[in-house]
Computed example of a mutant assay.
Amino acid sequence: MQAARRPHGDPAGDVVRWAAFSCLLVPVVLVVYGTSFGGAAVATLGLAAVTAACRVLLRHSERTERSAARILAEDRLTPSHRGRHSRAGAGGQRGCQVSSGMSPQD
């Protein structure tokens, strides 16, 4: 019988799972090596808080990345009018002459 394999498409989920595993393992190790139950509980709470914050940041990063990729894909699909005759940038308006203090007759 084969073990069911998960696709490796969720690296943030893998990180969060390992962090949750550490939140369970660290207090056990601390108690085995002589730390008080109170100290182990505080360490567990600290690790859980850091894990939760990291999970939020990872999910936010994934959403931002997907959003940026979608916008980039949309920009590639729609033709842009920013070619040679663009109005954007310096000197983009027709007939605009800037005086530098000297005229061509000088």
Rank of each mutant, 00 (worst) to 15 (best):
M1R: 09
M1L: 15
Q2H: 05
Q2M: 11
A3S: 13
A4Y: 07
R5A: 15
R5G: 11
R6E: 04
R6F: 10
R6V: 09
G9Q: 08
G9C: 14
A12T: 03
A12Q: 07
G13W: 01
G13A: 08
D14T: 13
D14N: 13
D14G: 11
D14K: 09
R17A: 14
W18S: 06
W18M: 08
A19M: 03
F21I: 11
F21P: 03
S22W: 01
S22A: 14
S22Q: 03
S22E: 04
C23E: 05
C23H: 14
L24W: 06
L24D: 04
L25Q: 03
P27Y: 03
P27F: 03
V28D: 02
V28F: 04
V29I: 13
V29G: 01
L30F: 14
T35C: 12
S36A: 15
F37W: 10
F37N: 11
F37P: 00
G38N: 01
G38A: 07
G39Y: 11
G39V: 13
A40W: 02
A40N: 03
V42Y: 02
V42H: 01
A43E: 04
T44M: 02
T44L: 07
L45Q: 05
G46M: 07
L47V: 06
A49Q: 01
A49K: 01
V50L: 14
V50H: 12
V50A: 15
V50G: 07
T51Y: 00
T51E: 01
T51F: 03
T51C: 02
A52R: 00
A52S: 00
A52P: 00
C54I: 12
C54F: 10
R55D: 01
V56M: 12
V56K: 12
V56H: 12
L57F: 11
L57C: 12
H60Q: 15
H60K: 13
H60R: 15
H60T: 15
S61K: 07
E62F: 14
E62A: 15
R63Y: 07
R63E: 07
T64F: 12
T64A: 12
E65G: 04
S67C: 11
S67W: 14
S67H: 10
S67F: 11
S67Y: 15
A69V: 12
R70Y: 09
R70G: 10
I71V: 13
L72H: 08
L72Y: 14
L72F: 15
L72C: 12
A73V: 06
E74I: 09
E74F: 11
D75M: 10
D75I: 04
D75R: 15
L77K: 14
T78Y: 12
P79Q: 06
S80I: 10
S80G: 09
H81T: 13
H81I: 14
R82D: 06
G83C: 05
G83N: 04
R84Y: 02
R84T: 02
R84V: 00
S86P: 00
S86K: 03
R87P: 10
R87K: 13
R87Q: 08
A88I: 06
G89K: 00
G92I: 14
G92C: 13
Q93S: 06
Q93R: 09
G95H: 08
G95P: 00
G95W: 10
C96F: 07
C96T: 04
C96H: 08
Q97A: 05
Q97N: 03
G101E: 05
G101C: 08
M102Q: 02
M102W: 11
S103H: 08
S103G: 10
Q105T: 11
D106P: 00
